[in-house]
Design a protein around this nucleic acid. Structure first.
Length: 195
DNA sequence: AGCACGATTAACT
DNA sequence: GTTAATCGTGCTC
């Protein structure tokens, strides 16, 4: 396989749950200061359609969510709680709003860059949360709408490790305290158990 | 024009 | 376990 190339658009042009599952083990690559900063994805969550009351797309097509309605393989980056950026990959057909939130990675390349951005925190807390990994890789609003399938992009994903199915766990998505059922309880979160 | 709130994190008690 | 931080977004008036 050709690892050193962005995952093709067809990878994202599928069921969001399949994409969320298959992104476990993929390598998230950020080009910053002319170097590669990357990590292996360990945790994801799927947000699927306007019916999903946990998704921003529940509000329909707005300026904020229009990127989720666009073609697959683009970056949906948004700001929340007054200080945090979160990174998603747009999935499925153009016109259908869906995306995968990247929640945790294991640092691989550019750890010095990551350490600078996460100064003062212990190594295990560098990239173990969706806003933490964005800070670590310097992902912010300037990367909203970036094409994740172009090798020219400052942000893309590559094939990385393959984890055995037995190491993959599903659970309900987190941070959805006031989201109504059945959406709150759907097991659309995917994690790799650490060895 | 104003307002309530959030796909979180870090610093508290 | 609890809560402040802090502002873009979407909704209401």
């Amino acid at each position: 396989m050709d690892n050193a190339r962005p995952l093709p658009r067809d990878f994202y042009h599928r069921s969001t749950l399949l994409v969320a599952r298959d992104l476990l083990g993929a390598r998230l690559v950020r080009i910053a200061d002319d170097q590669r900063v990357s990590g292996i994805i360990l945790e994801t969550e799927a947000y699927v359609g306007e019916d999903d009351q946990a998704s921003h797309a529940r509000a329909g097509r707005t300026k904020r969510t229009q990127i989720m309605y666009g073609p697959p393989g683009f970056a949906y980056v948004y700001f929340t709680y007054g200080k945090h950026w979160l990174f998603n990959c747009v999935t499925e057909e153009e016109g259908y709003p869906a995306a995968v939130l990247i929640r945790a990675i294991q640092p691989e390349e550019g750890t010095e860059f990551i350490a600078q951005n996460r100064a003062g925190r212990p190594r295990e807390e560098w990239t173990n949360g969706p806003a933490k990994l964005c800070q670590a890789l310097a992902i912010d609003g300037s990367l909203k709408g970036v094409d994740l399938c172009s090798p020219e992009s400052p942000l893309f994903l590559e094939k990385g490790e393959t984890f055995p199915p037995s190491s993959v766990t599903k659970s309900p998505r987190v941070g959805l305290n006031f989201v109504p059922e059945p959406w709150k309880s759907k097991s659309w979160r995917f994690l790799v158990e650490k060895l």
